[in-house]
């Protein structure tokens, strides 16, 4: 099971995730050495492949540097889970097929260093110690399509013959804060609830 690193503060920004002094490279393994350096210098020594970061709201705010996603992925992080994300970080995650899961109340679900059960198909994350579980906002269908294609550039290249059509047909209700199709569901069934309803749903706790 992956270990959870809890960074509970809101507004953890990309300057903290990867400081500008390291931006003279875009090599993921290089950037990985400095992941979270200005927030928690020791993080890169603790993190193991597959680990999860649980963070406060507005994660990834500030600079547009995609290096933030690369540094975390390079360090072995498999997903970041936060109540919400700053928009450029969020789209960088989507474009890289890197998991950014929106989940209200997530910072209370874990203590730092605990293990987590992440069920991507079921759309839930569970703390096996407490038995408590939360549902995250389903990943937008568009993000899944991009991930499946291998990233935004592959998605765009593959779709050059059908320019401008796919987004409207498949993914109109998807996007940040809007519930799309849960992972593994049939995209044709997509009829997600509005954000207000979705946020109410997120707060439910299911005891195992």
């Amino acid at each position: 099971m992956p270990t959870v690193h809890v960074f509970a503060r809101d507004h953890i920004n990309t300057d903290e995730i990867i400081p500008a002094r390291h931006l003279t490279t875009d090599v993921e393994s290089e950037l990985a050495k400095y992941a979270m350096e200005d927030y928690d210098k020791d993080f890169v020594r603790r993190v193991q492949p597959g680990d999860i970061i649980v963070a406060g709201a507005d994660f990834g705010c500030g600079s547009s540097r995609e290096h933030a996603v690369w540094a975390l992925r390079g360090a072995g992080v498999s997903a970041v889970i936060a109540p919400n994300f700053a928009r450029i970080y969020y789209r960088n995650s989507i474009n890289n097929g890197f998991l950014a899961l929106e989940c209200e109340g997530i910072t209370e679900l874990f203590q730092d260093g605990e293990e987590a059960e992440l069920d991507l198909k079921g759309g839930t994350i569970r703390n096996p110690r407490t038995g408590k579980e939360l549902s995250f906002v389903p990943v937008p269908q568009f993000a899944l399509d991009v991930q499946k294609a291998g990233g935004w550039l592959e998605y765009m290249k593959a779709g050059e013959d059908v320019e401008g059509e796919r987004l409207d047909n498949a993914s109109t209700s998807a996007g940040h804060g809007h519930a799309g199709t849960p992972l593994g569901d049939d995209p044709a069934k997509e009829d997600g609830p509005r954000p207000e309803q979705a946020s109410g749903h997120q707060k439910e706790e299911h005891h195992a």
Binding site: S64, N95, W152, H176
Partner: peptide, 20 residues
């Protein structure tokens, strides 16, 4: 609006970008 390097690459290549 500001974007990351992947979006930038897409814009350089095709002159377009996805937006919500």
């Amino acid at each position: 609006t500001g974007v990351g390097s992947t979006d930038l690459a897409g814009a350089i290549y095709a002159g377009k970008v996805w937006f919500k």
